[in-house]
Design a protein around this nucleic acid. Structure first.
Length: 479
RNA sequence: GGCCCCUUCGUCUAGCGGUUAGGACGCGGCCCUCUCACGGCUGAAACACGAGUUCGAUUCUCGUAGGGGUCACCA
């Protein structure tokens, strides 16, 4: 950190297309842009690339903004909607024609298909070489539709000094004359990104390396307009656990799903995404503030990283343990209410909050957290899970009876007194504490595992605890 | 297929010519212990391969193999 790394002129941006949720890969790209801007004391912009009218949806826009807010990736200024700038994009396309860096191309889809076919027949790599690049527009059929193409350089080579990939050079013969304006007059992505990034004053383009090849063609456009070239940083894509392309099967879902369906905390998600492709010595648990201080795009790894849920689970467990109890109670509440079949207002939020310290150390996700709290709110008679049923064999009746009597006689319902009483029962019977605690746990929670038995007793309270135990004493003591 | 990029334990990574190649997740063992966790200790586990350069390569160069990206009037 320090003043030497501060540069308020730095402007980064995240530019998702609203055709789906904010997925894991996009979230990481957004995070890196956000971190770099914060690190440099610059600004971070958000632009929605909605030029594909057919595939863009309002739901997707809402989901993306929701995901960004959840992760705490706040942007500066208003969200820019790319489609609203279409006129400006078209203006630049025409400016490029007058500057001699673009031309009207009257090739039809059929012409293109024929060119492609002949290239394939000759086993040549297909590069669009429109005859209209050199032809006089007056030769064009009157009123025929046309697209505007960029005149890409054909000689020499282009080099990009990428902050992540290093120096990358491509022969200009590899570049083709990309379409800037479609025949219906709407701008293509290639035109829009460049114009928007320029107009928005973006100084650092940090994006997935699936755009690296695009950068070379975009560079020709930038040069054609005599604009300043931004600093590029193409970060490797995320792969699935098997190393193959990251797909839904691998967990390439929207971040909303990680929050709602899988129960992850945003701080865990950020920490995981940060470490996925970047490292800072031996540090594993990195707060957002610490990340802002340490992050530098130059340290981002060049190799693709695989997505690993186990590590995310571990990180989430860590942040769960650190999280505020009332906050966790609020997160778990809806699930508990749904399980009990009650309204959220009917759940004792205070009890849930008090239980958090002993519940959260045992959970990896909010889902597990909620499930571990079910027993607190379930109504008698409790349904026993398999392990609890085993624990409550007929021989446990006497033990529970003794425990019941000892608990009834316990003057103060607090943890130390309860522990004394139960341990007294164990000693008197010549049994290990486990022999008493396990049947007790089954009777009190209906489960084979739970927080410490004395914690459970305190949380449930005297009346409920005794009633739950008695449920099993009575039945088994009939004879 | 053309072009471009990548390659350290199973996974995420540290390393930036000389290290017993470090940490974390996961896995095994031990301790703690009323169950499950948490926590502590501990074990197994990696420089893709082949040539160079160099006194010396995980580190620099070039190949090979493998993986990925990209080749639209999508973004």
């Amino acid at each position: 950190m320090g003043a030497s790394t501060q540069n308020p002129r730095v402007v980064t941006r995240f530019a998702p297309s609203p055709t789906g949720f904010l997925h894991i890969g996009g979230a990481r790209t957004a995070l890196y842009n956000w971190l770099y801007a914060k690190h440099m004391g610059g600004s971070f912009l958000l632009r929605i690339e909605d030029t594909d009218r057919a595939r863009s949806t309002d739901e997707a826009i809402a989901a993306i903004l929701d995901g960004m807010r959840w992760l705490g990736l706040d942007w500066d200024g208003d969200v820019i909607f790319q489609f609203s700038r279409a006129a400006r994009h078209a203006e630049v396309a025409h400016e490029l024609i007058t500057r001699g860096h673009a031309y009207r191309c009257y090739l039809t889809q059929d012409d293109l298909a024929a060119l492609r076919a002949s290239a394939e027949a000759d086993k040549r790599a297909f590069r669009i070489r429109s005859p209209w690049r050199e032809r006089d527009p007056s030769e064009a059929p009157a009123g025929a539709p046309y697209v505007i193409r960029l005149k890409a350089p054909t000689q020499g080579e282009t080099t990009i000094v990428d902050q992540v990939q290093g120096s990358v050079t491509v022969a200009n013969a590899e570049l083709d004359d990309m379409i800037l304006l479609r025949s219906d007059g709407t701008p293509t992505y290639m035109l829009s990104v460049v114009v928007d990034d320029h107009d928005m004053g973006v100084t650092h383009v940090i994006r997935g390396d699936d755009h690296l090849n695009n950068a070379f063609r975009q560079l020709a456009l930038i040069h054609g307009m005599d604009w300043e070239v931004p600093v590029y940083a193409h970060v490797p894509l995320i792969h699935g656990a098997d190393g193959a392309k990251f797909s839904k099967r691998h967990g390439a879902l929207g971040v909303n799903a990680y929050r709602d369906e899988m129960g992850y905390l945003p701080e865990a998600m950020n920490n995981y995404l940060l470490k996925l492709g970047w490292g800072h010595g031996d540090d594993e648990i990195i707060s957002s503030a610490q990340a802002v201080e340490w992050f530098d795009i130059a340290n981002v790894g060049r190799g693709a990283a695989r997505f690993d849920l186990k590590k995310l689970d571990n990180l989430n467990g860590h942040y769960l343990r650190e999280a505020d109890d009332a906050r966790l109670a609020a997160l778990a509440l809806p699930r508990i209410a749904a399980h009990i079949g009650a309204g959220e207002a009917e759940i004792d939020r205070s009890l849930l909050t008090r239980a958090m310290p002993v519940l959260k150390v045992r959970a990896k996700t909010v889902i597990e957290l909620a499930e571990s709290a079910f027993f607190l709110f379930e109504k008698r008679p409790l349904v026993m899970d398999e392990k609890a049923a085993t624990l409550l064999g007929t021989e446990s009746s006497d033990v529970l009876k003794h425990a019941y009597d000892a608990l009834v006689a316990t003057p103060l319902w607090e943890i130390e007194r309860l522990e004394e009483s139960i341990k007294g029962v164990a000693e008197a019977a010549g049994l290990g504490l486990g022999k008493i605690a396990q049947p007790l746990r089954a009777a009190l929670t209906g489960r084979g595992t739970s927080p410490g038995i004395f914690d459970v007793l305190v949380l449930l309270g005297r009346d409920e605890s005794l009633a739950r135990i008695n449920d099993h004493v009575a039945v088994n003591s009939e004879s």
